[in-house]
Design a protein around this nucleic acid. Sequence first.
DNA 1: GTTCTTGCAAACTGTTTGCATCATA
DNA 2: TATGATGCAAACAGTTTGCAAGAAC
Lengths: 138, 138
Amino acid sequence: MVNGPRMTKQRQLILEELKAMDHHPTADEIYHRVREKMPRISLGTVYRNLEKLAASGVIRKFDYAGSQMRFDADLHGHHHIRCARCGRIDDIDGAPDLRESDREMAARTGYRLTGSRIEYLGICPACIEEGRRAEEEE
Amino acid sequence: MVNGPRMTKQRQLILEELKAMDHHPTADEIYHRVREKMPRISLGTVYRNLEKLAASGVIRKFDYAGSQMRFDADLHGHHHIRCARCGRIDDIDGAPDLRESDREMAARTGYRLTGSRIEYLGICPACIEEGRRAEEEE
DNA sequence: GTTCTTGCAAACTGTTTGCATCATA
DNA sequence: TATGATGCAAACAGTTTGCAAGAAC
C-alpha cells in the first residue's frame, strides 16, 4: 500500500523560506537560509524536497537562466527579468500577452505548444550601482 | 606581443558543422558530429573553440533550456521554440516585437535592459509521433 | 509497524583547467 | 620560432542517488 507524501519539518521550513523570498532563489540559496534555522539539514534533502514540492504543484521550478535551477512559490503565471551580472531573477508584470501568438506559432511549427515565456535580460539596480562605485575607485 | 586567434583545422570544422545543423545543438552533439571527421579531437577542444567563437562574435551561445549550453551559427536575432521532451531547440519567426515593451519594463524595474527573448515551449513533431507510437503498443 | 524521509557520502553530468606537446602565423 | 591551440586527464559545480538510521502516519 502506498501512502502520500509527508509534511516533515524540513519540507515545511523549505516552503516557508521560499515563500518569504522576494526573488527566485537557487537550491543553494534556499539551503543556506534554511540551515540558519536547522543547521543539520543536508543539501540533498533540500533538492529532494524542492523536487517533491514542484511535482505536487505547490511550488514551481524553472530552468532558464544559466545553469542553475530556480524555484518559485508564486504559482500565478508571470514573466521574469534576469540580471546578466549576478544572476538574480525577479518577477515582472505587464508584459505582452502571448496567447494569440502561441496559437500562431503552434500552427507554424507543428509543435504541440504547452506555454511560452518572455525573459527580459539586463543589469539589476544593485549591479549598476556596484559598477558605478568600481569606476569611481579607479 | 600578443597575436590574434588562429584558424585551426579543429576550429574550422566545428564552425562548419555548427553551420550545417538545422537546430541549436549542445556542445556534446557538436563533439560527436565533429569526431566522425576528426576522431582524435577532444571535448575540451570543442568547448574552448565554441567559447572563442562566441567571444569573437562568430557564433552565439545561449544558456536557456535545461542545464546545457546551446550554440547557434545564425547571428540574426530570433526567438526559439524548445521541446520539453527531447530538449531540441528550433528557430521561430514572426514572434511579437518586444522593443516597445523592453522600454516599459526597464522604466518599471530600474534594470538597465540589454535584451529580451521569447521562449515557446512544447512537444516537437518527432516526440508527438513517438508518443503516439508508444500508446499504440500498449 | 510500515514506509516515507533524512543525513551523509559517493556518484554523475556538463563544463573548465593545467600541462606537456603540437602547429600556425 | 614565439605563442596560441591541442589532447588528455584531473578538477569543478550543480544535482542526483544508495544506504542505513530516523520520523510520520
